[in-house]
Design a protein around this nucleic acid. Structure first.
Lengths: 196, 196
DNA sequence: AAAGAATACTACCCGTTAATAGTTTTGTCA
DNA sequence: TGACAAAACTATTAACGGGTAGTATTCTTT
């Protein structure tokens, strides 16, 4: 969803062709680090945007080399962009991979939960270390935005570590709890509901 | 990735059919709340697992109603599962939707950055409120795991809010920085590199 | 007959990657 | 001077994995 909207944003400035969009995107958000968008994604996304009528092919330029298909944003596109800017970003799904792993290790006995936690903690420390190192490669005078991005990641890692500590200290309580069983629902037409 | 592995974990206990897997999954990780897996996803994932040879169709049971295709985990499947349990969960990509939105609002002038921040903050507070409310619907005596899941989400939301404050207080610094330009690379064969 | 559980499937969207292909510019070396 | 290497420039196609929407068939109970 975000590449899509980013392209709309860039096209709102002026019409561009695919390669140019790729360059602009990288410049804005991926200073050779972190967000690595492949050119092909730009083109597929562009195609889908066009299909949805948010973008249209304007003309075909030709300036040495292959032809350039130049795209422009449409009215509908501008509308979608405004929409995007004026709405909050939905939080990522609860779908937490580590959590499900931990629960499954508890529920199935296929792995040692404490070990799972330890592995994860090691990973988090490693990540934290890497992120911090990378963060310090940027110059606050000119690349403050990049630094903020890393700060966010770092804060999340710290939160994860705190959470992990909390969970570990109470893992026995969880173990003691009954395994959740799939609840059985009565078949057939339900009885007339008596509301509570 | 996680549904996939979760199915492997459940099949490691014993062979099951799709509907059963769906029920078990919901019981373990989605107490009617948060993680809502559609049955169709179970089936598509199962099909893909089978194609990769991690799971195989064992037999077709029949117990009232449509036939049940019963799946079992294979050796390769068990191997993949062990692999999963013994490796850390990779952090989610840097790909941060809010960040790119903010940067684009700064770079393109198509939206007011302060407003973007405010909208996001409102969203975060809303989410925080909802999460907290939901969290309190669970019983720590029997559903501690669910509560932990919410705790994690809550901690992340709090981190996001702190981060947002930090960013907002320094937004002018960012604004003052030169817009990142796509860097121009020299064409042609590169000069013989004089290593530093 | 109504209603919903039990069970399954297909088609599709979106983000993403891998692989490929042709043109132009420029440095290097014989 | 000319041949070639190397890389930028520009784009396309095929495919995969996660995920959703919608539908279809039976069976059981009221």
């Amino acid at each position: 969803m975000s590449v899509r909207n980013a392209l709309l944003g860039l096209l709102a400035q002026r019409p561009r062709h695919g390669y140019e969009l790729h360059a602009a995107f990288e410049a804005v958000v991926g200073g050779e680090e972190n967000w690595d968008v492949k050119p092909s994604q730009i083109y597929t996304t562009l195609a889908r945007l066009q299909e949805s009528g948010l973008v249209e092919e304007e003309s075909v330029g030709q300036g040495g080399g292959p032809e350039k298909r130049i795209y422009a944003i449409t009215r509908a596109g501008r509308h979608a962009l405004v929409e995007w800017f004026s709405s909050g970003v939905a939080r990522e799904h609860q779908r937490d991979e580590f959590f499900i792993k931990l629960i499954l290790s508890l529920a199935t006995g296929e792995a040692n939960p404490r070990k799972v936690i330890q592995t994860q903690r090691a990973k988090l420390y490693q990540d934290l270390h890497d992120m911090t190192a990378q963060r310090n490669h940027f110059d606050p005078k000119t690349e403050l935005a990049q630094i903020f991005l890393f700060d966010k990641a770092i804060m999340h890692l710290e939160a994860d570590l705190r959470w992990l500590d909390m969970i570990e200290s109470r893992i026995d309580e969880v173990k003691r709890q009954p395994l959740p069983e799939p609840e059985v629902k009565p078949r057939g037409r339900p009885k007339k509901e008596v509301r509570s």
